[in-house]
Design a protein around this nucleic acid. Structure first.
Lengths: 146, 146
DNA sequence: CAGGATCCCGCTAGATACTG
DNA sequence: CAGTATCTAGCGGGATCCTG
């Protein structure tokens, strides 16, 4: 099977690369905030909301599961739960269960999560400052060759 | 078909939400930098490289296609080309073709791209400062319930 | 050397139904 | 109310082959 050996060489190279990548802190964080729902949850709990419309600036507040699912209208329960779990695991937020009759669960950002939220605000700031410029470039590019 | 109407209600709600989301600058940018290769290309052209190992701090430099594909070891030609195109379209980098016999193409960040790169540096900074803390939380979390 | 075109697989997000 | 479990379809991305 001479056709395999060459492919295996490449596979090995990629494995090495991937191994390195796995250890890169920047990539790990990037993978984290790449997630659509991660950023939205962080934004919601950091209380600038996914909807700049209302734009309620204030302190981070605790929210209940159902509150979050209403706020992030598009999310499925599965993804919401899954994302919240992973954020809790990373120490970015806390999950508090109140032993009431119908269980009451609240989520709140930790200091770590709050600091990450600030980074995301930085992204938001850049976006609001430069995205229209990006759009202008796009239109120009598209006019030249559809 | 009464089973459809309820589903359609939900579909409409989501459509509205998606429409809103599509217009949100923050989300647009997030979608952009969410892309694994986008950030790596920006990092490579911003010359802090995907590999903090060498860690060559300096000015942004132009790179050739083949140079990039070597630098980002794991990328496929398809994704590299595709990503470069989209970045060019967004006005984040320039593509320059030198009419030599075997075509020579170089890519370089624009001012806009460079400023975005700085945002990404911010992410990197946070990552290097806090990712070990995140890992600590993970291990702790996993020990309590595998 | 730089990139276009195609095929195709894996993974993930979503829908649905059930539970403490 | 706040989840868990399962099943499935869609598509992002890789491999491969081909061109100017």
């Amino acid at each position: 099977m001479p056709t395999q050996t060459a492919a295996q060489q490449r596979a090995q190279a990629q494995a090495d690369y991937d191994a390195f990548m796995a250890g890169c802190p920047s990539r790990q964080l990037l993978d984290r905030i790449s997630d659509k729902w991660v950023t939205l949850i962080l934004a919601a709990l950091g209380s600038d909301g996914p909807h700049p419309v209302g734009d309620c600036a204030g302190e981070p507040r605790a929210m209940r599961y159902s509150e979050l699912s209403r706020r992030l209208a598009g999310v499925s329960q599965k993804m919401l739960t899954q994302t919240l779990r992973s954020l809790e695991r990373d120490g970015l937020l806390t999950r508090t269960v109140a032993p009431t009759v119908p269980a009451t669960v609240t989520y709140e950002l930790t200091d770590l999560g709050l600091s990450l939220h600030h980074v995301i605000r930085g992204i938001k700031t850049w976006a609001e400052a430069h995205m229209d410029e990006v759009h202008a470039h796009r239109e120009q590019y598209d006019r030249r060759a559809g």
